Amino acid sequence: MTVVVVTGGTRGIGQGLVRSFARLGADVAYCGRHVTEAPDGILAVTADVTVREDVRKLWDATVDRFGRVDIWVNNAGLSTSRRPLWELPPAEIDAVVGVNLGGTLQASAVVLEAMLAQGHGALWNMEGLGSTGQIVAGLTPYGATKRGLTYATLAMAKELKGTPVKACLLSPGMVVTDLLTRDYEPAELENAKKIFTILADRVETVTPWLAERVLKGTRNGGRVAWLTNRKAAYRFATAAFHNRDPFS
C-alpha cells in the first residue's frame, strides 16, 4: 500500500483528502493542532507544522505505524480576515505567513531530508489564490504566501533534480469551505456567489479526483490542477445552460 501523510487534515480540503486517500486503499496519517480520535486504520497526530520537531514527530509516528512515507501533502493553511492590509493586526498577518509559507518551508525541509535518506518520496504543496498571479483585494497576506509557495516548490524541484525524490504542486481550485466565504457581508456574499456558483466545487467533488491524481504521480516540479483555465472558460461559456449550486 502507498503511505500518505496530509497536514491540516482535520477539516476542509485536508479532511477530504484524508478520506479520499483511505477510500483509494492508501495507508493514511494526518495532523492538526487539535486532533480527535481518527477513523479505524488512519493515524492522527497532534502537530504544529511550523515546528520542525512536531513535523519529525509526525514523520516518525507514520514510519513506526506504516513502515515508510511515500507521499506527503503540505495542506495546512490559514487565511486572514477579508480586510485591507493596514487594518489587519500584526499577529494575524504573522500567523498566516507563519503557517502558509513558513510552515510549508519548515515541514518541507524535514520531509525532503527524510525522503532522500529513505531513497524515495513525493512532496506535494497546496496552491491557492495568488499562486498563478490572481490578485484579490482583502487577501493580501494569503495571496502573497501562496505566490511564494509556488516559487518555493519549483525551487525545491530544481534542488531535487537527479534524486529519487520529487516536489510537486497540487491546485484544488475554488472549493466551498469556510475560507472561501469568510467575512463577506450578506450583500457582498450574494454578489460573490454569482462567481462561486460557476467556478466553485464541493470538497467531496474535488478531493477524490485530487487524491487519485496524486497517487498516480507526476514529474518532479509538476502540477496537478482541478480548475484549469480551459475548464473555467468552459464553465463561464456554458453557465446559462447549467444550474450549478455548490452550496446546496
Rank of each mutant, 00 (worst) to 15 (best):
T2S: 15
V6M: 08
G8T: 03
G9A: 08
G12Y: 00
Q15F: 12
L17F: 02
R19S: 13
R19G: 08
A22L: 09
A26M: 11
D27I: 06
V28R: 01
Y30R: 03
G32A: 11
G32I: 02
D48N: 15
V49I: 15
D54I: 07
A61P: 01
A61Q: 02
T62H: 14
T62L: 14
V63G: 10
R65E: 15
R65A: 15
R68N: 12
V69H: 04
V69I: 07
V69C: 10
V73S: 02
N74A: 10
A76Y: 07
A76L: 06
A76V: 06
G77W: 03
S81D: 14
R82F: 10
R82G: 02
R83H: 08
E87Y: 03
I93C: 05
A95L: 12
V96K: 07
N100H: 03
A107R: 09
M115R: 06
L116D: 08
W124C: 04
N125V: 14
G130R: 00
S131E: 00
Q134I: 10
I135K: 11
P141T: 09
G143V: 08
K146Y: 13
G148P: 01
M156I: 14
A157T: 08
T163I: 03
K166I: 05
A167P: 03
T177L: 07
T177I: 13
L180V: 06
L180K: 03
E190S: 12
A192M: 15
V203M: 04
E204C: 12
T207F: 15
L210V: 02
A211L: 02
G217C: 09
T218H: 12
N220S: 14
G222F: 01
R223N: 13
R223F: 10
R230Q: 14
A232L: 00
A232V: 00
R235I: 00
F236L: 13
A237I: 07
A239Y: 01
R244G: 03
P246K: 05
